[in-house]
Structure formats: structure tokens, C-alpha cells
Nucleic acid binder design. Structure first.
Length: 613
DNA sequence: AAAAAAG
């Protein structure tokens, strides 16, 4: 079934795109004819040396589609790849030449080096650093449970060298000291490079950001895009990355800037709570990839500072959160009611560690003939995190907390570097606990949505640096934040959703490091007893007897169990209750997907079913 | 019921 890379790509190019659901309802305004977009790596070349560009001329979306659908076009998706992109931007500095492509860039400022120093390490250093930097037992990767479903799933790769990401990006990968792709990267990158939509479920701390950034950057470097209008005050990013919190957007931006360094791909971030004028100035200097939180983006769209009509890539990080009750209307507005390129004509990638079925169903509105990917963690789920639950009445929580913090301090072995993240339920509770900790001589700070953005960022910096090694946080810090050296996550108040718990404890045990998670449980948390006990059992944790008793007593109103504990979720399309609806044709390209008719995706390998069924 | 996200 799986053949070669090129075949897989070819299959995608020649048939299985779902175009059916799109052509009807979506009418897009024709943009005026524009000169062809010059990709960054070609900007200082003479026309004679350029590869034949697909003819562009009509509406940007329509003909770009034919551009990557056509097998002979030599487009960025197709199997036939001209060698542009492989040379001319390799040797470190990308040389001075004035770029013709973008207006007003003649005196373009020098790109700030996002890496501490620009040296690419020697091989000896690389070997030395390999374990320290990855910390992951790569030998165990063979055992990692992986589930894919959907049509013609491209096969995974084993090394970055197996994928042609381009010299500039490869150099940045080395600068980041990434040696091997993580499991989610091994699977997700080929899928994205093949132009497919993707719903990816992978554990916290498993390299998801790079998994969606690499294909986006690579695609923009190679892509042929219509020239974006200049001289207007509206900017036209090619890629949009949305995340649920400002700090996470900042973090993604910082990472993406490293990956995009010296590729000519410009990454800009926009989020609320910060002066908009500075962000506007950044935008006006040019943007290929926009990283944003929903509120600020809607603001920018309504002011017509940003247009989404040239978006080719849409990525939602923490996608399940983005589509939950609070966020969903805003996301729907951005994706469906503004001028966003319709699904099928853009590439959409959804990533999260958890993916409830109801959210998957909603998310499929944004996707076209997508591949579902679930990648487990090395070993069993959350193997690297030791989870403890203690029964603590609300009135005793503070003194219990103090005991834990004293013990941590006395332990000392982890030293100054050891950080403790304390989650509470409410903003008020966060302030009050921080105040109390400080009164009692514990160096604590707090982050939550009632603090100013400046205070939030200061708190996070102070925590990261070890200056205040205790951070009291609401769920604003539950997802995605990569904070090295968090050795202990304390759920002072348990969340009401097991998925939130999973994300919270995922702030420790990152990048192969071990971590400890302690939860305070009492009679107010009975609804969490069952899912918590199940989760702990699945991750080989010791479940206290009293919790088991609570679990068996509690009626079960929560969400159904995750697939065997190896994954955050499984493809809802494989759930029989969704297959009889007949709406399935929506997702599988209106019959072009013979491989799926049995209920399993064409790329699914039946021989391995016993591993997770 | 709370948290996040615009000002």
C-alpha cells in the first residue's frame, strides 16, 4: 500500500483532494492581476535562471489550486521537483543582494540573530550535546504507538535529511541542535509537505511547534504565490498560526523565528494587552507567517490591517481549546466569516495533546480530506511524570502546600534550578495564594488573566530565570508553555476537566526530563475521581485506594475514555456512531477515497491493528 | 462556575 514518497505525493496531487464541498458556497472576490510572487530564495536571481512558474493571473486562490494540483506544474507539492531551493541560499549569510520581491525593502534592516551565537556546533559537540539536548530515548521510538487514518497517508521519515526542507531550514535545525525528528515530527512533516490537512494529537512537550512550522516555512520558501499588494495599509500573510494565550503565541513566535532565520520568511506576532501600534509597525514591514491570539487578530481584521485572503497555511495550536465553547465563535469568525482562503485551497493543521470527539467533529468543518494522526509518548502515556494525589480539605491546602515546598527546599539536590508551578482555579485565588506564600517567605509570583500583560510577562520571566521559583497560575499557563526545569506541578485546585489536568501536568517532564505532579483532591472533586483514577492507571501510576473508592462511587458523566491510554484521542471518524450518519462523504472527498470505505483509512496498516485496538 | 481572548 505504501510505496514511495513520490508516489504518495503523486496520489495526493492527482486525485484525492476534496474540492467538492468548496466550490459551491464560497465565492471569492477576484483580486486584480498581479505579477508573480517571487519566493525569497529566488529574489536575487536573474529571471533566466528561474524555474518555469505556473501561470498565475486570476484570483489567487483558484489558480494556485491548479498550480499544486497539476502533476506537470513543477509546483511545491508535486513529485517533480526542480532544484530551485536547494542552492543559492545555503552558505550561511544570504548575501546582500537587493530583493526585488517586496516593496520598500531596499534598506532592509539586518535580521536579528535569534540564536545566542551563530556557530553551528562541530560534530564532536553534537555528539556531546545529543543526549543533553534531546534527553529522549530515541531507541524507544520504534515502540511508540502511532495511529493514522485518512486517505493515502504519506509514510513517516526517520531523519530530517530524508525530507527536503531546504538548506537554510536545515541549517537552523542544526542550530537548534535538533538531531532527529521526534515521533510527531516524523509523521506530521511528510503529511504536511504532501499538502494534506492534518489533525494531530501528540503528547505535551513532543515537538509539535516544529512539526507545523517546518512545513510552513519550507512551503513558503518554495512556493509560487501571487504578488501581494503593496502600498496599501493591509498586509497579506501566507500563513496564520493561532494559539489560545498570549504567552504561547509569544513562545511560538520565538521558536518560529529561529526556524525561519535567514530563510527570508518573515514571522510576526500579534496579541492583546500590548500596544497595537508596535505590532502594526512590525506587520507593515512585511509578514509571511502571522502568529496571533484570536482577539487581537479579529481586531486587526476589522480594522482591515490584515487580510486573510492569501492564507495558504492555517495552524491551530492547542486546537481543542481553540474550539471549545469560549473560543469557538471567534475562531469560526476568523476561519469562515472573514476573507480567509477556504478549506481545500489552504492547508489546515490542527495540533493538540488532547482531542475530544465533539471537538473533532467541529474541527472537521475547517478541514478537507484530512489525515488524523495520534502519536503516543515514549513508553506509556505521561511515563516521565510521577503523579500523586493527596486527599486534602480546602482548609488544609495551604499548610499541605507549605509542607511540599519545604520538602522541596530541603531536598535541595535539584537546587536553585528547580521550579514549582502551582495551579489554582481562580484569578482571585491565585492572587491570594501568592500573597500568602510571599508573607511566609516563599519567593512566589503569579500569572493570570487579571494581571496586566506586562505583569504576566514579568512573572513568567522571573519564574523561568529562577528568580521566583514558585509560580501560582490559573489555566492561562496550563497549555503549551515550555518552561525548562519545572520539576513539580502542584494542582492546588484540581481542574474540572481531565484534559486540563493532562495539559497542566505536561508543564513538567518535558524534553525527556522526569517530573513530579501532585494533586490535592477532596469531596469537591468527586467528578474527577473516575477520569483521574483511569488516567493514572493508564500511565502506570499508583492509585490510592481511597481514590478508587471515590471513582467507583461517582456516576460517570464525563467524556469517554481515551484510546487505551496511549493517545490523547483517536479519530472520531472511526467511531461507529459517526459513520452511520452519511455525512462522511464530507470528509473523504466525495468518493475519491475508496480506501476508507471499510471504516479505516487507506494508509492504515491492518497488520499493526493489535498494537492499539 | 471559571478561565482565556479586544479595549
Amino acid at each position: 500500500m505504501r510505496t514511495s514518497w513520490a508516489d504518495a505525493v503523486e496520489n495526493v496531487a492527482t486525485g484525492s483532494f476534496d474540492n467538492a464541498g468548496i466550490s459551491g458556497g464560497t465565492e471569492r472576490q477576484s483580486a486584480p492581476t498581479k505579477p508573480a510572487y517571487v519566493p525569497p530564495h529566488l529574489r536575487n536571481r536573474t529571471p533566466a535562471s528561474e524555474p518555469p512558474a505556473p501561470s498565475l493571473g486570476g484570483p489567487p486562490s483558484g489558480n494556485d489550486r491548479s498550480g499544486y494540483g497539476g502533476p506537470t506544474s513543477g509546483s511545491r507539492w508535486a513529485g517533480s521537483r526542480p532544484d530551485f531551493g536547494r542552492q543559492g541560499y545555503g552558505g550561511g549569510g544570504r548575501g546582500g543582494g537587493g530583493w526585488g520581491g517586496r516593496g520598500g525593502w531596499g534598506g532592509r534592516d539586518r535580521e536579528v540573530n535569534p540564536f545566542g551565537n551563530d556557530d553551528v556546533e562541530t560534530d564532536a559537540e553534537r555528539v556531546f550535546n545529543e543526549q543533553e539536548n534531546t534527553g529522549i530515548n530515541f531507541d524507544a521510538y520504534e515502540d511508540i504507538p502511532v495511529e493514522t487514518s485518512g486517505d493515502n497517508v504519506p509514510p513517516p521519515v526517520n531523519t530530517f535529511a530524508d525530507i527536503d526542507l531546504g538548506d537554510a531550514l536545515n541549517l537552523n535545525i542544526r542550530r537548534c541542535k535538533y538531531v532527529k525528528p521526534t515521533p510527531v515530527q516524523r509523521h506530521a512533516i511528510p503529511i504536511s509537505l504532501a499538502g494534506r490537512d492534518l489533525m494531530a494529537c501528540a503528547q505535551t512537550g513532543s515537538g509539535k511547534t516544529a512539526a507545523f512550522c517546518f512545513p510552513i516555512i519550507s512551503g513558503i520558501m518554495r512556493g509560487q504565490f501571487p504578488q501581494r499588494p503593496r502600498g496599501v495599509r493591509t498586509v497579506f500573510p501566507l500563513a496564520l498560526i493561532l494559539s489560545p494565550t498570549r504567552e504561547l503565541s509569544m513562545q511560538i513566535h520565538e521558536e518560529a523565528r529561529k526556524f525561519a532565520y535567514q530563510t527570508g520568511v518573515k514571522v510576526v506576532v500579534a496579541y492583546g494587552g500590548a500596544p497595537i501600534n508596535q505590532q502594526l509597525r512590525e506587520l507593515e514591514r512585511g509578514v509571511d507567517i502571522l502568529v496571533a491570539t484570536p482577539g487581537r487578530l479579529v481586531d486587526l481584521l476589522e480594522r482591515a490591517k490584515v487580510s486573510l485572503q492569501m492564507i495558504r497555511y492555517l495552524a491551530l495550536d492547542e486546537a481543542d481549546r481553540m474550539l471549545d465553547m469560549g473560543f469557538e465563535p471567534q475562531i469560526r469568525k476568523i476561519v469562515e466569516q472573514m476573507d480567509m482562503t477556504p478549506r481545500g485551497e489552504r492547508q489546515t493543521m490542527l495540533f493538540s495533546a488532547t482531542f475530544p470527539k465533539e471537538i473533532q467533529r467541529m474541527a472537521s468543518d475547517f478541514l478537507s480530506n484530512y489525515i488524523f494522526l495520534a502519536v503516543g509518548r515514549v513508553g506509556s502515556s505521561t511515563d516521565l511524570i510521577v503523579q500523586r494525589v493527596e486527599f486534602v480539605h480546602d482548609s488544609d491546602k495551604r499548610s499541605y502546600l507549605m509542607d511540599l515546598l519545604h520538602a522541596q527546599k530541603a531536598n535541595g539536590a535539584q537546587g536553585k534550578q528547580s521550579l514549582t508551578l502551582v495551579f489554582v482555579e481562580t484569578k482571585k485565588g491565585a492572587d491570594s495564594l501568592e500573597h500568602w506564600l510571599c508573607l511566609n517567605g516563599f519567593p512566589a509570583t503569579t500569572i493570570h488573566g487579571d494581571r496586566t500583560q506586562q505583569e504576566r510577562e514579568l512573572a513568567l520571566r522571573s519564574f523561568k530565570s529562577g528568580n521566583t521559583p514558585i509560580l501560582v497560575a490559573t489555566d492561562v499557563a496550563a497549555r503549551g508553555l515550555d518552561i525548562p526545569h519545572v520539576s513539580h506541578v502542584i494542582n492546588f485546585d484540581l481542574p474540572n476537566d481531565i484534559d486540563d489536568y493532562v495539559h497542566r501536568i505536561g508543564r513538567t517532564g518535558r524534553a525527556g526530563k522526569s517530573g513530579l505532579a501532585t494533586a490535592f483532591f477532596n469531596e469537591n472533586n468527586t467528578s474527577m475521581a473516575r477520569p483521574l483514577a483511569d488516567l493514572m492507571k493508564e500511565s502506570n501510576q499508583e492509585v490510592p485506594d481511597w481514590l478508587t473508592r471515590f471513582a467507583s462511587r461517582s456516576s460517570y458523566g464525563g467524556k469517554s475514555r481515551r484510546g487505551g491510554g496511549r493517545f490523547g484521542a483517536r479519530d472520531f471518524r472511526r467511531d461507529s456512531s459517526y459513520n452511520r450518519s452519511g455525512g462522511g462523504g464530507d470528509y473523504y472527498g466525495g468518493g475519491s477515497s475508496a480506501g476508507y470505505s471499510g471504516g479505516y483509512g487507506g494508509g492504515y496498516n491492518p497488520g499493526a491493528a493489535s498494537a492499539w485496538d
